[in-house]
Nucleic acid binder design. Structure first.
Lengths: 363, 363
DNA sequence: ATCTATAACGAAAACCTTTACTGTTACCCT
DNA sequence: AGGGTAACAGTAAAGGTTTTCGTTATAGAT
């Protein structure tokens, strides 16, 4: 045919070298049983010798299977997500898939680009681990027959599996823990309220506070952004309050690290002056100074559950899995939570009178 | 059964709806000028209405351009790399590329899989940011005509661009800084010595120590693994020494965080009892308690330099770029480095109390 | 020995797009 | 007005693989 200066090591080259047809090479490489063992070996050797690597694009084009699974996360620089990615990839690789990562950076536009990318690259499923799903975008993928799993309320999306995270339990445990050791003035720094899960966590916190019959003054609830800077800023605000909290619960560990930085920066002691509780239990939580008490949400559980839902879907695309598996959370007590020194002082000097000036925290 | 109700929204469907040929659709979508503006608009609208997304695999197959650039990193759970990835992706997206991430986890086998993956997916270039290149694997890509950029000694690889990091300068600054404020007993915890860059950093440290005429006892040089655990373990070893260092220089920030944890865990004060210096200046270095003095290696510089080298290559594949741009490093002094209290104390009270209390550290 | 069932392989279609090539139209210049 | 040319649209090939279908060879059964 056409003579080419460069040698494209394609399936034809292997076929030629092994003295068989390209069909046989394909079958041999894919382990199809209807090929003679002897021949298969010859093909393999030829492929080896030529250093042949199949062209995945061509394979995907014809077979309809790209061998990739999409994973959309919020941001890659928040350590929680790399841990999640790692778990997800490990599981995926084990099952013969590669992963395609997209990060939204909390931007709707980037989310759209991610989805588009996934569709274009023909991923065989996508896990939306962004903790605040974009319903219509997810719907778009579902319509194209792509299995989707996301974190969100049960059955919120027709045709997509959903994973629920038991935010309430963890937050309950955290508040209980603080209450038991004497805290009442507990503040909360949330994630960006545009996120579904941030609102959920905040609500769960307030419920937990209700359960210990302690109303939360509005200035004790601050909107953060899941970053260390946000935690720092939030803590600064809280520490400038006339009536300061004795404990700060954060909606993720990065926020807590920011808080820790702010508190220590002011020369305050943790947990003597202020207790801090994080959320996620990222690996680094064990290594902060002091080590962080936090609510663990096992990202490996999340990852494998997501993948299970996805692959269950691909296996039985007719009857959708639509799992609603619940991911547990639980408190891990380390050293940023403790008995509030300020508490004892408070009793003798009821600064509570000042609060009475404020109608909201009057009771 | 192949009973699929899926609607194949391919280029044909768009062509039909717009009443033109598929070639025109292709040209219109790709912004080729030889298509009438009016017609192009019609095509675009048709594509929009059908919610058409081009099949990237097919495009890649015929055009030879996959639109993807590979990025191989060591491990994704070390925060330095997500930051690098972020920068790299930002730059890549700006230039119209997507990125395909691979992580080696310091395993030669995983590195091989990464390379294989990149080749199979037809990436148009790959940046090997693993700080310890695998020459033959890189060579393999070069042979297939894939532009490669890696971190390593100048011109070490024929046909691949290389980026050099000025480890020496940063380490020199760090050691000078410590020397000026009175440190002489300075230890070093390296990365895994299987990594090229780990050896380089270690050597640079020793050179720096030579420059202040202070020999380094062998027990002051410890092999770590770039993890917090490794740093912790290394610090424990150093702190059990009869003659302890007054400062510990770490080959990356994660190691330093582990050291910080160990030191604080023993009730020692930083920097009064021990100074700690990290390497990388990850974002979190600003938020440790106390904030970490560290040697900055700007990952954004690294990322953009890598991408530049790659795209320069693709632009002029004939005359290889083979850049050897030097990435600077410099010391960022925060609060984990300071005047060594022990220095003065040592003279009067030779740490005898600890040895008597703890028989283990007696010798 | 003949026929059938089956295993093994090859030829070719199909996947979806880009792009070189070809054909058509319209316009401009002389 | 006619020829040349520029601008545009369509046809078809190409890209590398999987997979269907058809063919051949082999073995088993009668």
């Amino acid at each position: 045919m056409t003579l080419k200066p460069r040698t494209p090591v394609d399936i034809r080259a292997v076929a030629k070298r092994a003295g068989v047809s390209i069909a046989t090479v394909s079958r041999a490489m894919n382990g199809i049983t209807t090929v003679d063992a002897e021949l298969a070996k010859r093909v393999m050797r030829a492929a080896e010798e030529l250093n042949y690597t199949p062209n995945t694009q061509a394979r995907a084009l014809v077979s309809g299977r790209s061998g990739m699974i999409g994973l959309i996360v919020s941001e890659i620089t928040n350590p929680f997500f790399p841990e999640l990615i790692q778990s997800f990839e490990d599981s995926a690789v084990k099952r013969g898939y590669e992963i395609l990562i997209g990060s939204t950076n909390y931007s709707a536009e980037r989310m759209m680009q991610c989805v588009r990318r996934m569709v274009e690259r023909m991923v065989e499923g996508v896990a939306v681990m962004t903790f605040g799903m974009d319903e219509d975008l997810v719907q778009q993928m579902v319509e194209r027959g792509i299995p989707v799993v996301s974190i969100g309320p049960k059955n919120s999306l027709e045709g997509a599996s959903s994973l629920q995270v038991d935010f309430r339990r963890g937050l309950h445990e955290a508040v209980q823990h603080l209450a038991v050791i004497g805290h009442r003035k507990i503040a909360f720094i949330s994630g960006p309220l545009s996120l579904d899960s941030a609102r959920q966590r905040q609500k769960a916190f307030q419920e937990a506070m209700s359960s210990i019959s302690t109303p939360v003054p509005p200035q004790f609830v601050i909107e953060g952004d899941h970053t260390m800077e946000g935690g720092f800023a939030g803590a600064e605000k809280l520490l400038s309050l006339k009536e300061k909290p004795t404990a700060i619960v954060c909606s993720n560990d990065m926020t807590a690290i920011g808080v820790l930085h702010a508190v220590s920066g002011r020369g305050l002691k943790v947990p003597d002056d202020i207790s801090i509780i994080g959320f996620d239990d990222i690996h680094m939580a064990q290594f902060t100074v002091p080590p962080l008490t936090t609510i663990r949400m096992a990202c490996s559980d999340l990852a494998t559950a997501a993948l299970d839902a996805l692959l269950h879907d691909t296996a039985e695309p007719m009857r959708k899995f639509e799992a609603t598996r619940m991911i547990p959370t639980r408190l891990i007590v380390r050293q940023t939570s403790g008995y509030p020194r300020q508490h004892a002082v408070k009793r003798t000097k009821p600064a509570a009178k000042k609060t009475s000036a404020r109608p909201v925290s009057a009771d």
